[in-house]
């Protein structure tokens, strides 16, 4: 392992052997087999069907949490935390399965819920509007950004969410 001292001994530069390349590159020039990448993409497409199903369940959960918030406002902080978790998980997955618009809507929901100065300021209708939009998207298999109509829908949700306290 090559080691050199630099900056009057202030730091050491170490060049470890590239064990990873040695391990995977036995055959030559390398690169990931494009057929295997296609294989992975088709597996993800299949998983996208399961993902759509899980989004429907999560939207039902958001609807229920919105209702709970209305009936038990003293539990607002707990409900806010749960909504943040759902929105965070969905925004991190949607686009992987081709549902970029689910990631965009979840991002809007996350920003809205996270940006409130108090959990008590949550508005159940705003939560429901996001859940309703996500459900409409996956129920109808709208992928990508949803085109002009989808982009307009996301923008309208972002505008609603940016008002913070409605």
């Amino acid at each position: 392992m090559a080691q050199e001292s630099h900056g009057n001994g202030q730091y050491q530069l170490i060049t470890p052997p590239n064990l990873l390349k040695a391990k995977v590159g036995k055959g030559g020039a390398g690169g990931i087999d494009p057929d295997l990448i296609k294989n992975a993409e088709s597996v993800i497409d299949t998983m996208g069907v399961e993902f759509a199903g899980s989004v429907e369940l999560e939207t039902a959960r958001i609807m229920k949490l919105a209702m709970d918030f209305e009936s038990e406002p003293d539990k607002a902080a707990k409900i806010q935390k749960k909504i943040l978790r759902v929105a965070h998980d969905l925004r991190g997955q949607g686009a992987t399965y081709g549902y970029n618009i689910v990631s965009d809507i979840s991002e809007s929901l996350f920003r809205y819920t996270d940006g409130l100065s108090s959990a008590a300021d949550m508005n159940a209708d705003v939560l429901r509007a996001h859940a309703d939009a996500m459900r409409a998207v996956v129920k109808n298999g709208v992928k990508g950004d949803g085109g002009a109509v989808g982009i307009d829908l996301v923008k309208s949700l972002e505008a609603l969410a940016s008002r913070r306290k409605v």
């Binding site: 686009a95 081709g98 970029n100 509007a129 309703d132 939009a133 409409a136 998207v137 129920k139 109808n140 298999g141 709208v142 992928k143 990508g144 950004d145 949803g146 085109g147 002009a148 109509v149 989808g150 307009d152 829908l153 309208s156």
Partner: peptide, 22 residues
């Protein structure tokens, strides 16, 4: 790598569902 969808790519049912939500 945002997947852009054109309005023509959406079926009438998909468009209606998004418009209803909007």
């Amino acid at each position: 790598e945002k997947v852009n969808v054109s309005v023509r790519d959406l079926s009438e049912q998909q468009r209606n569902a998004l418009q209803e939500s909007r």
